[in-house]
Amino acid sequence: MSETSARRRLPRGLVGAVLVTVLLGLYVWAIAGRGVAMIRTGEPVLVGIGAAVLVIPLLVLGMIGLEYRLAARVQRMADVLAGEGGLPVDDLPRSPGGRVDRAAADSAFASYREAVEREPGSWRAWYRLAFAYDAARDRRRAREALRKASSLFDG
């Protein structure tokens, strides 16, 4: 195995996520600068508005941190499952446009849901359920299931 192929590849969406984060960081920097400028005027109304404006960058930074933490934990879970040979296999039939066949996704979903009902404390079951939700195009529930898997994961 060559040195290049032995190196771990970057996750697929990492470059895009970092780019969007940098752009969002520039936006947050600009907003924070406006808030500080308002506070420096010393006028009570502007000081109040400036302080309120500074809350926005703090919230954004907190949310970004939480999303990156979740992404890192999901990757660690995937690594563990890959090592065990237990990653969910995406073998569902697809349309010529690449969309997963809805009926096939729904039927595959049932077994993953039953696994979670049998073992509600299993992060592995929740992880697989998340990808079943994703195949069924229910992104909101997929993220909820990934968050649940992450909270149960101790690695």
Rank of each mutant, 00 (worst) to 15 (best):
D91K: 03
S107W: 01
S95P: 01
A135N: 11
E43Y: 11
L152P: 03
A32M: 14
V47L: 05
R141L: 11
M38R: 15
K148P: 00
V100I: 14
I64Q: 11
L26A: 12
Y68K: 03
E3M: 05
A51F: 14
R94S: 03
P120K: 02
M63L: 11
A103F: 00
E144Y: 01
A71H: 08
V20W: 14
A103D: 04
E117C: 02
P44T: 09
R140T: 14
Y112T: 13
T41V: 10
A82S: 11
Y68F: 15
E3H: 13
P96V: 12
R137Y: 08
F153A: 09
G62H: 14
F153N: 03
G62L: 15
A51L: 15
V15A: 15
D154I: 12
E67C: 07
A108Q: 01
Y68H: 10
R137F: 02
P88V: 07
M1G: 15
G48H: 07
T4K: 08
I56K: 09
A136V: 02
L46I: 04
L70F: 09
R147L: 14
V80H: 09
R69E: 06
S151V: 02
I39M: 13
Y133N: 07
V74F: 04
E114M: 08
T21E: 09
I56R: 08
R69P: 00
V45W: 13
V53E: 13
M63S: 04
V80K: 06
V74K: 13
A103L: 04
A145Y: 05
